[in-house]
Amino acid sequence: MTRYVALSRGINVGRHRRVPMPTLREWLADLGCAEVRAYPRSGNAVFVPPSGGTGPDAWGEALERAIAERLSPDVRVLVLEGDELCRVAARIPFSSRDIDSAQLLVTFLSGPVDRARLADLDPAAYAPDQLHVGEREVYVHCPDGVRRSRLTQALWERRLGLFGTARDGNTVRALAAMVTSDEPR
């Protein structure tokens, strides 16, 4: 049984486009998904898709359509296989002993990173922030806080031409735990 993780960008941010997590679970259940669990107040969910062979991209599009019909057409959703999210969490390049997880930002991208498009990026220009580029994700340690960082998903989207959505280290680790747990949430 393959679990997927839906990362919604544009809901439950600020006061606009609020979606209670029971509602998000209901929308996924309406699409035929099972074992739907949502991370509190986040727009993130773990679910088992119905059998039928559609992949994560198709599920992201389906959830975007469901949200557009009920809420707003400009909400984007990135869906990953649960194993991929767990690999991203396991590869966090900064030691948890050295940093606060709330100061870690992981931007998940809709496709692989083309490193040539980042060749002229000077990490020293963004100090004290530190970055590490993964396969389909970018890890940023923001010692002055994620809100002050200039290494944002918008930067990665412009440079790489990909859709991205960012989560802090606490959320990434919690979602990985949800993927591997059989306990309902």
Rank of each mutant, 00 (worst) to 15 (best):
L175V: 14
V146E: 12
D144E: 10
R150W: 03
L118S: 04
V179S: 10
T180F: 00
R185G: 15
L155H: 14
R136F: 07
E135C: 11
A127T: 09
A177V: 05
V133N: 11
A177H: 07
E135N: 10
A125F: 06
V172A: 09
R117N: 04
G164I: 00
L175A: 08
V146A: 11
G169T: 01
D182V: 09
L175T: 09
E183L: 13
A176P: 15
G145F: 09
G134E: 08
R117F: 02
R150M: 05
R136C: 09
D144N: 12
L151M: 05
L160T: 02
R117M: 03
V146P: 14
E135F: 10
R117Q: 05
S149T: 06
L162Y: 09
R185H: 10
S149E: 03
A119H: 03
E183H: 14
C142H: 07
G134W: 06
V179H: 13
H141W: 15
V140F: 05
N170L: 13
R117Y: 01
T180A: 14
V179C: 12
S181H: 01
L155E: 10
G164S: 01
E157D: 03
A119M: 01
G145R: 07
V138W: 07
R136L: 00
N170A: 13
L131M: 15
H141L: 11
L160Q: 04
A124F: 02
N170T: 11
W156V: 01
T171Y: 09
L121F: 05
Q153C: 08
L162R: 12
A124P: 04
L160W: 04
E137S: 15
D168Y: 09
R150T: 01
C142P: 00
A174V: 10
R117T: 03
H132C: 11
V179Y: 06
G164K: 01
L162M: 03
D144S: 06
T171G: 08
W156N: 02
E137A: 15
D168L: 09
A166I: 12
T152W: 05
R148S: 06
F163I: 08
E137D: 13
T165P: 11
A177L: 08
G145P: 14
E137N: 13
A125T: 05
A176I: 13
L131K: 12
G169L: 07
A174G: 13
D120K: 05
L118D: 03
E157C: 02
R136N: 14
T152F: 05
R167F: 04
T180K: 14
D168W: 06
T152C: 05
S181D: 00
S181L: 02
